[in-house]
Design a protein around this nucleic acid. Structure first.
Lengths: 276, 276
DNA sequence: AGATATTTGTTCGTATGTATT
DNA sequence: TAATACATACGAACAAATATC
């Protein structure tokens, strides 16, 4: 008579146990670095077999909530979800519904100027030098297609550097993700793999002015420059996208095949685990 | 080649297998609904034991990428990550660094006006009626604290309804998440659990004007109204937050205790699995 | 440096549950 | 109802990693 959970609807044992562990964390006020009870103990307390416990822990681990170590004093440790993991899990959401370039810039246009505004007084000389050092990768026309591709990536890294100093973690995440998307979207790869002199020149100009304004402490101006930068980049990217679409897509619009359009994530959709 | 991957550093077997399966999905062009090879087959091909395979699959399942069914024709099936799952995984990221009210509104202020603008012509009569039906929950002063709390939730649901019609999946996700955060943040619960007449009245007024503008097809105006709405709500919420902070926080600012501030996610930080 | 103890990681055999036919 | 195909779960054994002495 398990009326305690009315329509338990075949909840999976591992899911139940996973939740139990989460609850344990919350109710015991555990935080990053704290250790969970060891497997053998969990087997006892939760009355499940080793395999089941391990599956549940693996679920938590793949969500980035814990990591495990072997050896004495080892076990499962609570961790803060890292930026990278959050990006990866988010990209899964878009795996079968890749955003368009327009979608991405619609967000960037709104958020990155705000991001810049939030940087007020948070950059020191070393930070500015890092920014300029990245910019030096694309302050000149590329000598090869390979260099051109790298310049595009570096230009996006410039924006990631700014994000690193944002004091608002929510805003930071929401700025970071579209940038990472642009780095891995295959639609973009197609664009990046072709010469596009204006994109580099224009981008570098805006960023130059942006850094100068920030150096002078004029965040308002800097924010405006970022807005223009995004507006201009969107225009160039969409224009190019339209060109390539016309070139690549054959006249036949019917492609009911099973080949899904998750072109999206080449780089992001990988490694479930990483260091440590 | 930098020293990026000098030694593989004992990648976990389950992680390797998880990636192998992801790769399998991508390289075979599989999409939602398609079935993965069955356990026994994976055991063969990937040369791992049942337990290891199962742990890897559980990892993918907890990321929302697959779900499994028993019985003949059963197995692991690829699924699109649902909105709810994405929200849950995202909330994990903020579990130990809950955003402040200011953080949240900084984002909402930028995105929700854009959201409204993207709704151009996408709402029909039934949609407007749904919006108004939600608004009817808070078109009058509350009779009890309980009703007051529910009014706050309903007011947020109004915004979620708008999000449902956004054609930009990236923007939609980024609008939805802050709203869900407000629903579950304990800081907000504290605010919601106290009488706050202006919050309701003001919110209802803005939304009334917003719907009217949308009905007339004036998305520009509607977008502006949303911007004002967010601005005003932010002011009220932050004012209240400051009041409560002053009331609750004792004079001692030192609290190096292990009691973590993941007050954040009361409702979100639950269920690893759900229907089916 | 080497031995040992501790704890997770992996495998196998077996039994049970569940959905299809 | 029975047979079948598949995931789910258990338990025991052994392997590998790592901290400590």
């Amino acid at each position: 008579m398990t009326s305690s959970t009315p329509r338990n609807q075949r909840r999976k044992r591992t899911a139940v146990i996973g939740d139990a562990i989460k609850e344990y964390i919350a109710s015991h006020g555990l935080g990053p670095g704290d250790r969970l009870p060891q497997e053998s103990h969990l087997i006892d307390v939760l009355d499940a077999s080793k395999g089941t416990i391990r599956e549940a822990l693996r679920g938590l681990e793949s969500q980035g909530l814990i990591h495990t170590r072997t050896g004495p004093g080892g076990g499962a440790f609570i961790t803060e979800v890292t930026d990278d993991r959050a990006m990866e899990l988010l990209s899964n959401y878009f795996f079968f519904r890749p955003p368009t370039i327009h979608d991405i810039y619609q967000v960037r246009k709104q958020l990155e100027p705000t991001l810049v505004a939030s940087l007020d007084g948070r950059l020191d000389d070393a930070d500015f030098q890092r920014l300029e050092s990245v910019m030096s990768f694309y302050d000149h026309p590329p000598a090869s297609l390979e260099e051109e591709r790298q310049q595009r990536i570096k230009e996006l890294e410039f924006h990631l550097l700014l994000v690193d100093h944002c004091p608002n973690p929510l805003l930071a995440l929401m700025c970071r993700f579209p940038i990472r998307l642009l780095m891995s979207l295959t639609t973009c790869q197609r664009i990046y793999d072709q010469p596009y002199p204006e994109l580099r020149r224009q981008g570098h100009d805006y960023q130059r002015r942006l850094v100068d304004a920030l150096r002078r402490g004029q965040v308002e101006t800097a924010s405006d420059i970022m807005a223009e930068h995004m507006q201009a980049a969107q225009a160039l990217m969409e224009e190019r996208e339209a060109m390539l679409d016309k070139a690549f897509f054959k006249a036949d619009a019917d492609e009911a095949g099973p080949s899904h359009e998750y072109l999206a994530l080449s780089g992001l959709f990988t490694r479930t685990d990483e260091k440590n």
